[in-house]
Amino acid sequence: MEINEARCCGQCLRSPPPFETTHVPWRYEGDIAAALQRFKFQADRRAGHLLAALMDEGLNTLKFEAPAEILMPVPLHADRARERGFDQTAWLARQLAARRGWQLLGAQRVRATPSQRDLDRRARRRNVAGAFRVPRALPETVILLDDVMTTGATLASLAGACRDAGVRHVSVLAVARTPSRMHRIC
């Protein structure tokens, strides 16, 4: 895996994530954060459609290292999806897949993990370690999707499961990332 050192934080240089590229077009603040919160916690489909349209438009200038074969959303645990009434990342993935003509493939969150909200980088990694199961018949390239990326621990855990299943190229998409300098990712 080749990493662009000019765009990576020290943590990613010391311990590279199990994905090659990351595309996160917005910071999790202001109107984007408000739209994501309405979508995620109030099931506001209008906010979801806006976020999907913005993501789709942003993807027009993105060049993947390998052709996109599968879009895989980071899954919620079934209990958390029942609490919210839906899985916001799976919903967003269906919208993007339909707009882009991409195939969807689901992963499974095999254990309920506590919220990552108040955890530091190391605790986040431990919290989601081994939390995902993916189908064994995966293509060479997978694009993972999440709504918000903070330290990248959740996406790294899912990417690791994909690598273990034989995926050679893993890219990451997220709507927004937290703006803290200590959470910068490649």
Rank of each mutant, 00 (worst) to 15 (best):
I32Q: 06
D44M: 07
L54A: 15
W26L: 02
V24G: 00
L51P: 01
L50C: 13
L59I: 10
A90F: 00
F19W: 13
L76E: 00
F39Q: 06
G30I: 12
E65W: 02
I32L: 12
L51W: 01
D44I: 08
D56M: 01
R46P: 05
R80N: 06
P18I: 02
P73D: 06
R100M: 10
W91I: 02
L92C: 04
M72K: 09
V74W: 02
E83S: 08
A97H: 08
D31Q: 06
G85T: 10
W91Y: 15
G30F: 10
L62W: 13
A97E: 06
E69G: 07
F41L: 11
A34K: 12
F64E: 03
R38S: 12
T22C: 14
R84M: 07
T22M: 10
T89K: 01
A90P: 00
L71T: 04
D56V: 06
D87A: 11
I32R: 02
E83W: 05
F39H: 09
A52R: 00
I32D: 00
A35M: 10
A47G: 06
D44N: 11
A81V: 04
L62V: 15
A33T: 05
I70Y: 07
Q42A: 13
R27T: 11
A52W: 02
D56I: 03
P73L: 11
V74F: 01
H77I: 07
R27G: 03
R82G: 11
P67T: 05
L36M: 14
D44A: 04
R80K: 15
E65G: 15
L76M: 12
L50E: 15
V74M: 07
R45V: 13
Y28H: 12
T21H: 13
F39W: 13
M72H: 08
D79Y: 01
D56T: 14
A34N: 09
E57G: 13
Q42N: 15
P18S: 09
L92G: 01
L59M: 13
G48L: 06
D31K: 03
L54S: 13
M72N: 05
R99A: 03
G58R: 14
F39A: 02
M55L: 15
T61I: 14
D56K: 08
R82D: 09
H77D: 10
F86N: 00
A33M: 12
A81S: 12
G48M: 07
